[in-house]
Design a protein around this nucleic acid. Structure first.
Lengths: 142, 142
DNA sequence: TTCCTTCTTGCAAATCATTCGCAATAATCG
DNA sequence: CGATTATTGCGAATGATTTGCAAGAAGGAA
């Protein structure tokens, strides 16, 4: 989906299409993966959007369904455009490197949960972590 | 697994089996679901274990593999005994009620990730949320 | 058991992400 | 263009989690 299309859809709701929302959406649009509020703030160093404003916009856009909170990391919650396939990542507990896991593999599970619980508008936030190939502890054979 | 067995296993590592670790483990042993540091602190009101100590013990026990961080909630990260099947829950974004989803359905996915990425000792933290049956917004048919 | 060494604890202060209050600003609509 | 009301920036407040440090308790040695 094009950025302009997103902008138009937003205006059809009763909220204003502000510089702040445009900046946040544009930033996530360009991003290859989920971004945290801090990371977005960093990307936007030029437009100098206040961090609190970014948080507020993320919340608004998430409630309207334009964004998805995809995972927690050391740097906080990450968001991604919901109009796009998202992915999760796995982080090494030793060296901190993050590896993307490709397209989210939880869609089936989400449907099952919806059917079983009766909840709707279900979203999921997932965080995987472990030892990456370079940081695996030598087996202590007791 | 029995609590005493857990205690013995801990002593086989090079850490001390203290009142604090016993209390945290016992608390999680009795619990039916994951508990946050705050919740454990509440349960232990009698033994008056300091919150900082609980956090430190949770971290230690997690690193040793006795505990699993299972999910984030409004009250913070939740932990459960790793020697036991754990579950995740879904929380209503409106009323806040939490519903358990039963035994964790991510085991297969974990194996796949391990094979694909080469990471090991993988753990996952999952949070589902949505609108519970009582809090579903009426469809605004445009 | 007693002593020693080292891991743990309690307490208070420090972090960090995120949220809030409020006055100044800017979208949108007529 | 001018009024109305959502939005922003800024600073302060929260709340979970962490950290520094001195006092206290495990576990081993004597």
């Amino acid at each position: 989906m094009q950025l302009q299309t997103l902008f138009k859809e937003i205006q059809s709701h009763d909220i204003r299409l502000t510089k702040g929302k445009k900046a946040v959406l544009e930033c996530l649009y360009k991003a290859k993966c989920g971004l945290s509020a801090q990371e977005i703030h960093g990307e936007l160093s030029d437009s100098a959007l206040d961090l609190a404003t970014i948080y507020r916009n993320l919340e608004t856009l998430e409630k309207l369904g334009f964004l998805l909170k995809t995972e927690y990391s050391a740097k906080g919650a990450k968001y991604a455009l919901s109009s796009r396939k998202h992915s999760h990542s796995i982080e090494c507990v030793e060296c901190g490197q993050e590896v993307s896991l490709g397209e989210c593999a939880l869609q089936e599970l989400m449907k099952t949960i919806q059917q079983k619980t009766g909840f709707n508008n279900i979203s999921h936030v997932v965080k995987f972590s472990g030892n990456c190939p370079q940081c695996q502890p030598t087996e202590k054979t007791a």
